[in-house]
């Protein structure tokens, strides 16, 4: 079996601070400080997030629950696995092209919109800058709109997310990981029309 964080207290603290800043300043890729070993199909960056945030009180849905990944996560984080996306606090999407529609994840309750899913999506990469294929985002945490492209998402992903954003403050919060980087899109980040 592979190891987890070499220094659980400080590695998870440093990872959390990056996740907090990622959520507070959306659509900007940030490097994660520690990449723990991770069995396929879990990416090391996704493993860092799971080890930082999940434990026996959270349920996690794995899109591709390989035996090794399940054993590893159960041993190191003690987390519960959810059978259905709807029941998950966290979901790990390891093959975004085949991911279930966003509507299948919990978006919270109007009195408790925090009881909603957080998705960790392993994507191919991010591209920022002003080129034509970039999407533009605005919302809390962004001083001005930012341009960004995320590679490897299903074709109708942004339509699904736009449909969800009509239900604010209900919604789903997203962490995208690629290589060593993490980027967050909370429910409040709006996709601007071009």
């Amino acid at each position: 079996m592979l190891a987890a964080f070499a220094d659980p207290v400080f590695d998870s603290q440093r990872t959390f601070r990056e996740l907090l800043q990622a959520m507070a300043r959306p659509a900007a890729p940030r490097p994660l400080p520690v990449l723990p070993p991770a069995p396929a199909p879990v990416a090391p960056a996704a493993m860092a997030i799971l080890l930082t945030l999940c434990d026996a009180t959270t349920s996690v849905w794995l899109q591709q629950p390989s035996d090794e990944a399940v054993r590893h996560l159960r041993f190191h984080a003690g987390l519960r696995l959810a059978d259905e996306p709807q029941a998950a606090d966290f979901a790990l999407i390891s093959e975004p092209a085949a991911m279930p529609p966003l509507q299948r994840f919990g978006a919270g309750d109007l009195r408790y919109p925090d009881r909603s899913a957080s998705l960790i999506v392993q994507v191919d990469g991010f591209r920022s800058g002003a080129e034509a294929d970039r999407l533009r985002f605005a919302g809390p945490g962004l001083r001005e709109p930012v341009a960004l492209a995320i590679d490897g998402l299903p074709a109708d992903f942004w339509q699904q997310r736009a449909a969800l954003s009509a239900r604010l403050p209900l919604g789903i919060d997203l962490f995208f990981v690629a290589a060593q980087q993490v980027l967050a899109l909370p429910r409040t980040t709006r996709l601007l029309e071009t």
Binding site: L20, L53, C54, T57, T58, D114, P186
Partner: peptide
């Protein structure tokens, strides 16, 4: 550490909403 993780999950949701 369990308490910190609980707080950290709540803080991330707080920032998201």
């Amino acid at each position: 550490e369990d308490t910190k993780r609980m707080l950290r999950r709540a803080l991330l949701k707080a920032v998201a909403i």
